[in-house]
Write a protein that binds this DNA or RNA. Structure first.
Lengths: 158, 158
DNA sequence: TTGAAGCATTAACCTAAATTAAGAAGTCAT
DNA sequence: ATGACTTCTTAATTTAGGTTAATGCTTCAA
């Protein structure tokens, strides 16, 4: 367990790494993301101050995710020891993921964007639009259009 | 903790229920699903023999999910006590959900269907197509078409 | 300071999947 | 057995979002 200071753009973890760590964000902002078979990035999680990022894989498996600093950050690095983690913390993450799966299946891009704004109002200003789009599962162009449409319709009072 | 026998079609849990239980399937098949704001069902999980179904919510919260028997089933019903659950079991579920989120964002309907066939080959024959479609996040019509296209292209050897 | 690269926006066009509708086949309760 | 449901399939049409491309802004390294 140690504390490290990392520059914006640094990759803390690559897909395929084994014996990965647990990263607790003291200051700054991290993201985890995957790269699919077509070479496209998909943001899985944003982790601001106080959040914990780690791959959910078994101890010896290769990681699925990349972890990157979006801002200069100070991060506490710990050994992974799943069996000692509070089950309640894990259950909460399951609940979050359950809701994300349901929302991906049932809500439109705009609806998911509005839900994101409500749930993570503090993160919106700190990350590029294209990463928010990626988190929502849409293209930056589609997000840009959705925001434009939303603005226009609210001006007209529709 | 008790063992119950339930008929196909029985609802074990409704959205909004509090003090929900943990259901361990001894025989038969359960599913959990949500109903969204537009009244549409979304299958969240299929649970055949040996699987456990439970809402991931905090003890006092209202449940998000319905749980229903797809076949006549025998189910062991236990009190929910998240803090006593093996963290490794929870971590595995997180891993499954992580992959599901990533696949929902990156794979097409047909790709998700093929992944489903590989991952749950035993379940495919036991549940109606429309529930598989619902699990994949597409309409029954789209799944039917995808299967037809797949068959046709494999005949032609494409 | 300036040029190159990355980012956001807009628009034209294209495609995957939703919607709607209709018909065939299976299941169920009476 | 018969009629009422439900499921599956197919097809026509529509729509949300993807792709491609052009334009103006930043940012940042040389």
């Amino acid at each position: 367990m140690k504390k490290i200071s990392i520059k914006k753009g640094t990759l803390l973890q690559h897909k395929g790494d084994v014996n990965t760590m647990v990263y607790e964000v003291e200051s700054g902002l991290l993201r985890s993301f995957s790269i699919d078979a077509k070479g496209k990035e998909h943001v899985f999680l944003f982790a601001p101050e106080g959040w914990i990022v780690a791959d959910a894989i078994a101890p010896e498996e290769a990681s699925e995710l990349f972890i990157e600093a979006i801002e200069d950050s100070i991060v506490i690095v710990k050994e992974r020891d799943v069996s000692s983690v509070d089950p309640i913390v894990l259950a909460k993450r399951i609940s979050v993921l359950q809701n994300r799966v349901i929302r991906l299946m049932s809500a439109s891009a705009i609806e998911r964007y509005e839900a994101f704004l409500k749930t993570y109002p503090d993160i919106v200003q700190r990350v590029p639009q294209k990463m928010i789009a990626s988190f929502l599962g849409i293209t930056p162009e589609a997000l840009s259009k959705a925001k434009g449409d939303k603005m226009r319709s609210s001006i007209k009072g529709i």
